[in-house]
Design a protein around this nucleic acid. Sequence first.
RNA 1: GGCGACGUGGCCAAGUGGUAAGGCAAGGGUCUGCAAAACCCUUAUCACCGGUUCGAAUCCGGUCGUCGCCU
Length: 303
Amino acid sequence: MVVIVGPTGVGKTSLALQLASQFNGEIISADSRSIYRGMDIGTDKPSLLIRNNIRHHLIDICYPDQTISLGQYKKLALDAINQTLAQHSTPFLVGGTGQYIMALVEGWQIPEVAPDESLRKELGKLSELELERWLTMVDPVSAERIDRRNTRRVIRALEVAFKIGKPFSGFQQKEEPDLDIVMIGLTADREAIYKRTDERIDNMMASGLLEEVIGLRNQGYTRRLPAMSGLGYQQLMAYLDGECSLEEAIIRIKFETHRFIRQQSSWFRADDQRIKWFDITNSDYRLSITDMLENWFMENRKY
RNA sequence: GGCGACGUGGCCAAGUGGUAAGGCAAGGGUCUGCAAAACCCUUAUCACCGGUUCGAAUCCGGUCGUCGCCU
């Protein structure tokens, strides 16, 4: 399997398309927002035309008022990967959602405890201190590990502990997947990436991002939905609710995107030995990648 | 040339005698079923010089700079 990672806007998608057609591959998207139907412009989804040409998995798999959890994602992705391999094609896992990528690459064994909304709601009423006390009681290891101020994570740990009667921390194992993996990272210096994404946002606006958001809103999708927490959607919803001007909303999208890029770099680290990094500022980076991949395929004849 | 106001971190900005709020930006970190989420951490001695004072970003004088008004 070929994995392509890197911050948003560095050109992962376009590289993946090129490589997939060169090396007979299919694309497994690792993007927590492209899973939603109707959210196209803001997520910079590849067009239907392109997707008809090269098979894409895990895009448009649910509606914006649904959610796909990490565990579900992992299963679906694994299925898609195996399906691709069964057809003697190469899976290209591509995306910017660090958690999804790492869960697959490192083989996280995710506790099979489905979210229990009513339990979460109940626990949400408790104070930080009360939550911490509970967690210390049921799962001292997690209590030590998780920042008690991050109630969302504390609640998940409690949820698991309550549901199966065993501490959450006991489940957090990793099991390397039985796959040959090359990880390609695309990068550039921060300023260059910021510039690219700023421009991309302007292009999205020009391509009708606002209209897309209005459309979703008219279909009744509200701001509180996890899907709508996506970059662009959240800020434009705020604008539509009269909370700020359009100009402010666009600036916020840009700044939030910068923040997201910083956050991604803590999943995909420059010093991660598993990742082979390529600087997109380098004019022949694609050639270097192709060369590298050719060698890799030779060493892994099975493809 | 005269008069007045102002000069606080990259930007905005509180603070008018007891040793620098906050916001934004930026940087770093956590992450096992909401992750484009959630959470945590980091960043100045207050234009400069001198004085008053136990003690000044805060008071006084000067220098430089910015802005406004006047001639």
